[in-house]
Every structure is written in C-alpha cells, then in structure tokens.
Design a protein around this nucleic acid. Sequence first.
RNA 1: GGAGAGGUGGCCGAGUGGCCGAAGGCAGCAGUUUGCUAAACUGCCGUAGGGGGAAACUUCUACCGAGGGUUCAAAUCCCUCCCUCUCCGCCA
Length: 439
Amino acid sequence: MLDSSRFQELPTMYDLRALRDNLDAIREQLGLRGADVPWDRLRALIEQRRTLTSQVEQLRSELNKGSEEVATLKRAKQPADAAMVAMKSIGERIKRIEDELRGIEETLTDLNLRIPNLPHASVPAGKDADSNVEIRRWGSPPILPIPAKSHGDLGEALGILDFDRAAKIAGARFAVLTGAGARLERALINYMLDLHTTQHGYREVLPPFLVNRSSMTATGQLPKFEEDLFRLRDEDYFLIPTAEVPVTNLHRNETLNESALPIRYTAYTPCFRREAGSYGKDTKGLIRLHQFNKVELVAFTIPEQSYEELERLTNHAEAILQGLGLHYRVVTLCAGDMGFSAAKTYDIEVWLPSQNHYREISSCSNFEGFQARRASIRYKDTGGKKGQKTEFVHTLNGSGLAVGRTLMAILENYQQPDGSVTIPERLRHYMGGVERIKK
RNA sequence: GGAGAGGUGGCCGAGUGGCCGAAGGCAGCAGUUUGCUAAACUGCCGUAGGGGGAAACUUCUACCGAGGGUUCAAAUCCCUCCCUCUCCGCCA
C-alpha cells in the first residue's frame, strides 16, 4: 500500500477497505439519514486507487533493486550507466502513475470526508424531528398565569437583557447581559462546572476558542459545513461552534493507554455559529444567537463501553436541570435529524412556558469511531498481551448545558406575577445569596 | 514584527547522497546467574499497509515535523508550510 501519511493532513473517515467491502450495506444504512453520496464514483475510485497502488509498489520494488545494483557497481568502480538509464525510465513511469494516484486520492479523501456517520441500530428511522422518540420526562411544568411572559420580555423589563444595544454594537442575534443577568449567567457556568468536576468525575479544561482547519475536519464540521462557521479573514482559524472541537482534538494523533480510559472532560467556552439558513427562525430572545456560552461534556472510551457512557453522560447533563428544578424531556433523535458525525443522539428539551413547548437545551451524542478515525485517536493496552492491535477509541460529547438557554428557562419557569424571577435554590450561593431578581 | 537555532524510534542522541529503518545509550520484555534485592551477561525490542503461511514467521512497500522537487538512489541537497527554542521589539 502507498504510504497514507503523504495525505495525512487530510484525515479519513471511512477506512477505505471497510468501505469497499461493505459499500452496499453502508449505502443502505446511510439512506436512512438521507445522505447524498456518489456511490458509484466512489466505488470506481477505490478500485482505481487499488490498481495503481499495486503498480507503483511493484515498480518501486524494481527501482530499489536497480538502485542497489548501481550502488554495488559504483563501489566496485564499474560502469553503471546501463542500469541508471533503465532506472530512469522506471522512475518516470512511477512519477506518472503517482501523479494520477495523487489526484484520485485527493478526490477520494474529499468524498470520504463528506460521508456522514452510520446511525446505530437503536436509532429510529425518519426524516426529521417529527420522528424523534420521547423516552422520558422529568418533573412537571410550573403553574403560571396565562399567558406566561417570554424570557425576552421578562429580561428586558428587569433590565438584565439588552437586545437593542447588542444589535447596535454587534448586530442581530447577539445579546447583552447586565447586572443580575450577567451574574446569573456566570453563576450557571460555575454551578455546572462544579457539579461535573466534583460529582461526575470530569476534568475541567479551558481550551482555545479559535482552532485550525485540521481540528475542524477531525470532529466533522469541515469540509462540509464551512458556511456554518465564523472564520478569520487573514488566518486559517475558525471560531469554535462548540467546545467539542478543541476538547476532542486534545488527543488528536495520540495513542492512549487503555488504562487511562475512559477520559472525561468538561469545558466552559463561548460558542460561535453563523446560523446561516435560519433566517427568520427564533429571532427573538436568547434561543438562537451567533455567540452563546456552553458547558460541554466530552468523553473518550473503549468501543465496548461507549453506549453505557452515552447514558451516563446524558444523565450528567440531566442532573443540571434536576438541580435547578426545571421540567424537561429526553428524546432519541431519528436518523434524519441527527448531526453529521453522530451515531446516536439524545436531545434534552427543557420546558418553555411562553412557547408552551419543549426546546433543546442539550444534545448528547456517541460518535463511535467516526471522529476518532478522522482525528486518529487510538488506544492500546500497553500492559497486556503482546501484539495487541491499536484501535480507535469512541468519542462522545454533550452539552451540560447550553448556558443561555438555561438562563432563559429559569427566567420563564421561575417568573412571578409581578414580573420578578426567583433564583433556584442551588444557584443562590453562586449569586451571593440573591433569592430573587426584581426591578 | 525583526534576527538566529532547531524538529531523527517510548526517551536521550549519532548520522551531509548508496551497504541507513537508521550507530550508541537509557527505559522496556525474555533468559542466564542469584538466599532476596541489586549488579553483570545474552537475546528481543518502532508503526502502517499489501502478498505468502495453520502458526512461529516470511517477503514487499512506505514512514527520520508535513507537503512538493532534484537524483539511478534522499534522514542527508533544493523549495513551501507547520511547530519548538533563544535574542530584540511590542503587549496583558
């Protein structure tokens, strides 16, 4: 096989052999999520690559032998011109084939990187959110005067949210938090991080908020979704859309010791999203912003444990809402509603009284080996039997939680008839004892 | 931003065109010796992929930061990029 490190900067999602051997099965399974992949072209390219690769290897073997001959002759002070001429023409043939091969590899890699992950067998079929399956609810909606006020109205009236000035200094889809609002946001971040680090066993990380192209490719945002990202003009840096990107990439190109797994990280970061294509949707309030805060949970496990870990991780995110006494439900996303890289996703949806609806506040996914292959994150049991294969880890992550949406849920669910908002018990000591936000 | 020095196996470190997948050392593994530990000695000891073999193994290809180029032949020469370090400037 030709050395794949030649194209190492372009990671590979599907192992090409696995893809070739299981193309029809993969094709069928991906049909569930409506993936548009040029399968026949892909198949042809894989075959071409295989043929050309073996040609190159054969020629190169000849060339190596010939070169050794030249070396021997030269050392013996004998003329070597004939061999050199012969080798030159082999060299030229190799170059020609390699040029062709390079083109094929580039196309193949690019196509490959655009194939989404396979849904897990337990994922329900379906095209869109209508086919998602509710699996549990916790708590119950608060009893409120009808109609309940929206968090936007409440926040502006309380003087803790300012969308007009945010529009002035930045634009649409930004928010300014002031006074008790800013402090509540900060209290939530601390509450979440503290719970995850002290009760759930996560290690806190504060990563860069700008990352390079390789990192974005590894977790699956690139190459397909560049239009969703903010990118710097003069440098090839992107603003992170989620802490998943820098934190998962902590271990890119690493081989982990099996005894170190599972590894669990939690990170607070702001998140930046272009929200291209969502014009006119959720234009009011804190729901959909270009910049928002999030506390993320990230885990690396051996493959056998990743689904167990997904349940754990989801429960950890739920614990935040339970601590705040916010009613929510958990749904399993159907194949068509899942993100590109996910094999299985649970969304946690919090109750929003003003909308009389559940709204996503966390998304917890198992990516299985998808990101690990793109990022080349493996593990090995170094203490164990000899010759043990290094294999790809499974990666997972989930919001634990989206902070702005949590603040929004608190404002709405804890609103009082006079327009003030009670602070949930658990947050009060993070708020310096404040029990209620009022005008 | 300016000037310079570097990136070689788990680690240290040699290697300026051929017999180099890479000396030597450390660490690790197996063994000999041994009252135990230690020391000494012997052997093994990178990764990925293809072919052959039931297997131990064997053979081919690639890999000395990444990518391209020169050459019959590149760790070694040339170009581009990335990263690290030192000095200067600037800054929190």
